[in-house]
């Protein structure tokens, strides 16, 4: 278990609190789940925070795990770097149970991680954060010339695309020829 128990005070199940007399119903203890990325560092996140992710919400909605079961079965996201998952978990915790305001100051600022963050958020289906990330990607080229856009978004020129396509065809041809030769060898 990592030390990154974002926004939670304890790994243990919350103690039932005494409901005030005026309350209509007793407070339900919050449930927690565990996730880890490529670096295997486990993050404890509340179900409320995870509701932002349509993917995880769908996974946990019918599990009915106890705290122990949840701890023993963290959700593995091997395709997401640990620091990126940390950013996503932070954001989910900060926005637990509330919609993102139009001017959200808690959004991830690390531009150098934007590409990986977008892919992770897209994979985890966190709609509001994805919209924000796409806006950030778009903002990078607002008001820029095609030359500048090509540089910022690493868009290959037509000549580079053609060369890459030729190379790919060549490679595919060689591989096909290799397979044919191997099959002929096997037949002998």
């Amino acid at each position: 278990m990592s030390s990154t128990e974002q926004g939670t005070s304890s790994a243990a199940p919350a103690e039932p609190t005494t409901a005030p007399e005026s309350a209509a119903a007793p407070e339900v203890p919050e449930s927690f789940y565990y996730v880890h990325g490529k670096d295997k560092v486990v993050h404890k996140v509340s179900a409320g925070a995870l509701q932002h992710s349509a993917l995880i919400h769908g996974m946990i909605s019918n599990l009915g795990y106890t705290e122990e079961q949840a701890k023993a079965n963290p959700f593995p996201f091997e395709n997401i770097d640990g620091d990126i998952l940390q950013m996503v978990v932070d954001w989910c915790n900060q926005h637990k149970g509330k919609p993102t305001p139009p001017e959200d100051t808690n959004l991830p600022k690390q531009k150098e991680k934007l590409f990986d963050l977008v892919l992770a958020v897209n994979y985890l289906e966190i709609k509001e954060l994805l919209t924000y990330c796409c806006k950030q990607v778009a903002m990078m080229v607002k008001g820029k010339s095609p030359e500048e856009i090509r540089e910022i978004w690493m868009i290959p020129t037509d000549a580079e695309d053609e060369a890459a396509e030729k190379e790919a065809k060549k490679r595919a041809g060689k591989e096909a020829a290799g397979e044919t030769a191997a099959a002929a060898g096997d037949a002998k």
């Binding site: 531009k111 150098e112 934007l114 590409f115 977008v118 892919l119 990607v137 990078m140 540089e151 910022i152 978004w153 690493m154 868009i155 290959p156």
Partner: peptide
Amino acid sequence: MPIALLKF
């Protein structure tokens, strides 16, 4: 910091 948009 550039990003490879077409890999999205």
